[in-house]
Computed example of a mutant assay.
Amino acid sequence: MKYLGLLAIWALSADIYALENEIERLYKANNVEGAILIESADGKLKYQYNVNNKESFIPASTFKIPNTLIILEEGLIKDSSEVIAWDGVEREYAPWNKDQTLKTAFKYSCVWCYQRYAKKVGDLKYHKYLKDFDYGNQLTGREITRFWLDGDLRVSVKDQISFLRKLYVENLPIQKQHIKTLKNIMLSESNSQIKIWSKTGWSGKDGWYVGYLVINNQTWFFANHIEIKQSSDLALRKKLTLEAFRILNIVQ
């Protein structure tokens, strides 16, 4: 029996290794430098490519996931539909140049919206939340309105999934109603086959697509970081993630 158990473990390991090789070929075929981690909810299955736990990156707009919770917990905005008044400043991205709600600010990665609230949260409270969340290296920097864009905050691919797991089971020092509000905002795709809760991010060379999906009553967490060399690479954040799920035969 012991021999059969070892044989089963070896077979599973060999299968995972073969699938991870296919994911590696996917990234190389698209000339992408990156790392991806996909984990089952029970933690029994883990697929990865080029993951180095010592390597961390600027979270960019993926920080809007914990940041939204902080803004809600601090009572700076009531719910996802409260209007965030546009300041009238024309910016390079047209969807930002109008009134927003927390839902649209999250969807369109509205930088000025979150910067407005960052000033109100302040450095001391951000450090406390980052510590309580055990989020990344827990650093901010000199500019409180930009620490997730080009400041000192860094997260690894593994850090992203670690936080997503806490969010999923609602094991965070945040009121449950605020976690549910965030989850409603994060739901980016929903049909009879699949549901995806996700966020993209981009700052300089750092491109992200992180979240979790539910399909066939199974939950899978994912974090994909790629190096952005040109604007056309942005579409690869999500595209490569979903292609990896197809390689694993999780998504059709």
Rank of each mutant, 00 (worst) to 15 (best):
R165A: 02
L102M: 14
I77N: 05
Y108N: 09
G34P: 03
W112T: 06
G88R: 10
I84F: 06
A118Q: 03
R154K: 12
S162M: 08
Q160K: 01
R146M: 08
A94K: 11
A35K: 04
Y93C: 03
Q48D: 12
S80Y: 12
Y129P: 00
N21H: 15
N31K: 15
S40T: 09
N31C: 14
G136Q: 09
V83R: 11
D152N: 12
K44T: 12
K125L: 11
E24G: 14
K131W: 11
E55A: 11
E33N: 14
Y108S: 08
E74K: 04
L139C: 07
L45T: 08
L76E: 05
D42C: 12
I70H: 01
K78L: 15
I84M: 09
D79K: 10
R146I: 07
F57E: 00
N97W: 07
Y114I: 00
K128E: 05
R91F: 07
E33A: 11
K54W: 13
K98A: 12
Y126R: 01
P59D: 10
N21F: 09
P66R: 02
A94T: 13
T145I: 09
E90A: 10
E33V: 06
L164A: 02
I71Y: 05
S61E: 03
V89A: 10
K158C: 11
V155W: 05
V155T: 05
D134T: 07
I70K: 03
R142C: 11
K120N: 13
F133Y: 08
D87K: 09
E92P: 05
L76K: 07
D150G: 07
D150L: 08
E90F: 04
S61I: 00
V83G: 13
F106G: 00
S81P: 11
T101A: 13
I36T: 01
E82F: 14
I23R: 01
E33P: 04
L26P: 02
A29G: 15
R25H: 15
D159E: 10
E55G: 05
Q160L: 06
I58A: 06
I38W: 03
F163R: 03
T68A: 10
I65P: 00
G43F: 06
G151I: 02
T145V: 08
E73Y: 09
L45R: 07
A105W: 02
R91Y: 07
G151Y: 02
I58Y: 04
Q160R: 06
D150V: 04
K98G: 05
A85C: 13
E39R: 02
D87T: 04
Y126M: 08
A94W: 09
D123C: 05
L124G: 12
D99N: 14
E74I: 06
G122M: 06
Y135V: 04
I23P: 01
Q115C: 04
K128I: 04
R91A: 07
W96G: 00
S162H: 10
S56C: 07
S162V: 12
R25M: 15
I58K: 08
S61F: 02
S61K: 07
V155M: 00
L102G: 06
T104M: 05
S109E: 04
N137F: 08
N52D: 15
